[in-house]
C-alpha cells in the first residue's frame, strides 16, 4: 500500500497549483513562438526525403519506367499493377501503370527498388479524394512535386 501523505491546508485549497498551471499557459501564449500554421495560406517545408504522393519521372517526356516489375514485387501492400508492352522507341514500357493509393502504406520501398529512378515519392501530402480512384499512368506522369 502506498503511504498517503496528508496535504496541508494551503495545498488542500489547490489555489497555488491552479495559478501555477495557468501561468504556464499564459507564458506560452504570450512569449513563445507559435508552432501552428495558418494552413492553406502558410505551408510547412518538408524534408526532401518525405514520402508523399507518387509520380513517375520523365526525361524528355519519355517515362523512365521500363516495366521491370521490381516495385510490384517489393510492394508490401501489393498496390502497384503494371502491364508491360513494346513500342518503337522503347523496347519495354508500361502500357498500364496503376497505383491503388488507398492500399499504399507509403513505405517508399518502390522508390528504393527502382533501378531506373522512375517511381518517386514527392513532397505532396494533400491527397484526399472524394472518390475511390487509383492513380493511372497518365496521372503519375504529370511531374508534380518533382524532386529532380
Amino acid at each position: 500500500m502506498l503511504a498517503q501523505r496528508k496535504p496541508g491546508i494551503l495545498n488542500r485549497f489547490y489555489l497555488i497549483e491552479i495559478v501555477r498551471g495557468l501561468w504556464i499557459t499564459l507564458r506560452n501564449f504570450l512569449f513563445h513562438e507559435k508552432v501552428t500554421l495558418q494552413f492553406p495560406e502558410q505551408r510547412r517545408d518538408y524534408s526532401p526525403r518525405y514520402r508523399g504522393q507518387h509520380y513517375i519521372k520523365t526525361v524528355n517526356e519519355v517515362e523512365n519506367c521500363t516495366a521491370c516489375m521490381l516495385c510490384p514485387t517489393v510492394c508490401p501492400a501489393e498496390c502497384i499493377h503494371i502491364v508491360a508492352g513494346e513500342r518503337e522507341d522503347k523496347e519495354k514500357y508500361p502500357i498500364k501503370f496503376e497505383i491503388d493509393i488507398l492500399r499504399c502504406c507509403f513505405c517508399g520501398m518502390c522508390e528504393e527498388a527502382c533501378p531506373k529512378d522512375a517511381i518517386k515519392l514527392s513532397n505532396i501530402y494533400e491527397m484526399s479524394q472524394e472518390h475511390r480512384e487509383v492513380y493511372t499512368k497518365d496521372f503519375l506522369l504529370e511531374q508534380r512535386g518533382n524532386k529532380k
Binding site: A67, M69, A84, E86
Partner: peptide
C-alpha cells in the same frame, strides 16, 4: 512469354 510476367512471380 515476352514481357508477360517476370520469372520470379
Amino acid at each position: 512469354f515476352r514481357f508477360k510476367k517476370r520469372a520470379w512471380m
